[in-house]
Design a protein around this nucleic acid. Sequence first.
DNA 1: CTGTTATCGATAATGATTATAAAATAATAA
DNA 2: TTATTATTTTATAATCATTATCGATAACAG
Lengths: 145, 145
Amino acid sequence: MEHRIDRIKKQLHAQSYKLTPQREATVRVLLEREEDHLSAEDVYLLVKEKAPEIGLATVYRTLELLSELKVVDKINFGDGVSRYDLRKEGAAHFHHHLVCMECGSVEEIVDDLLEDVEKIVENDWGFQVKDHRLTFHGICRDCQK
Amino acid sequence: MEHRIDRIKKQLHAQSYKLTPQREATVRVLLEREEDHLSAEDVYLLVKEKAPEIGLATVYRTLELLSELKVVDKINFGDGVSRYDLRKEGAAHFHHHLVCMECGSVEEIVDDLLEDVEKIVENDWGFQVKDHRLTFHGICRDCQK
DNA sequence: CTGTTATCGATAATGATTATAAAATAATAA
DNA sequence: TTATTATTTTATAATCATTATCGATAACAG
Ligand SMILES: [Mn+2]
Ligand SMILES: [Mn+2]
Ligand SMILES: [Zn+2]
Ligand SMILES: [Zn+2]
């Protein structure tokens, strides 16, 4: 945990941003809830428990900043809100999601799986792939009974 | 064109909805601009040229209805608005997108490409895939110079 | 025709996100 | 240290996409 916070601190400093107490509290929440997919409001409420004086706008600004630094990815599952997802430690590409249409659960796939597909896209479409977003919609193991 | 409108009309009737003049005008706009990825506002302005009396709420309601019927897919490229994308004639799965980070252009890939990946997801994760959303972010052919 | 239901258009309400302005904090210079 | 400047924060207002409401109108059934 402290290790990852240190790395994020360095990433901020590299762009001459500071790791303020508010920013650190926000990052800690994201690390503690790494498996989840929190909205800005979710993050705000959780950060408030550690740092009750924080404002919602600061959380939005911090999440935006972390997005720019590629510390988090901003994603959208089609409900009205953006969600913020920590990049896996050292991952080159964004991970994938399995969204259950029955119970709404979201599972993560860290394996790349798209290497072959990306080669096809680069060769046949001449498109230079930098990143991807892949979500499967279907029925999770539990909901299949 | 008329053929596809007929098919959509039948899909509506199958759920006992009617193809009102407003709905037809909206569908015509979507068919005429099939390559594009129009927002509700975009659709509204275009429909207004054919049927100036239409209201914005009706366009939203119609797009929502067409989403339910799987005639269009509602997608989100991360700018603040939802966009509506006609399903390809007879396509089982949603098509993919190549978004250029340089010029913002959006290219479509109709080929499935994910058959192998979906097999892996079904076998290794026990997740029954019903549909997918795949977007590549990168540099398009033109912007590579 | 007459009552019922579906749909529409105008507009108000909602809710997420962003912009603004004043205060607080941190960095820097004298 | 003290003054000055730049950055960040908080509270709050503004924005903007989308949804809800409601009275009017059209389609429909009996
Ligand atoms: Mn995730
Ligand atoms: Mn498309
Ligand atoms: Zn499930
Ligand atoms: Zn381009």
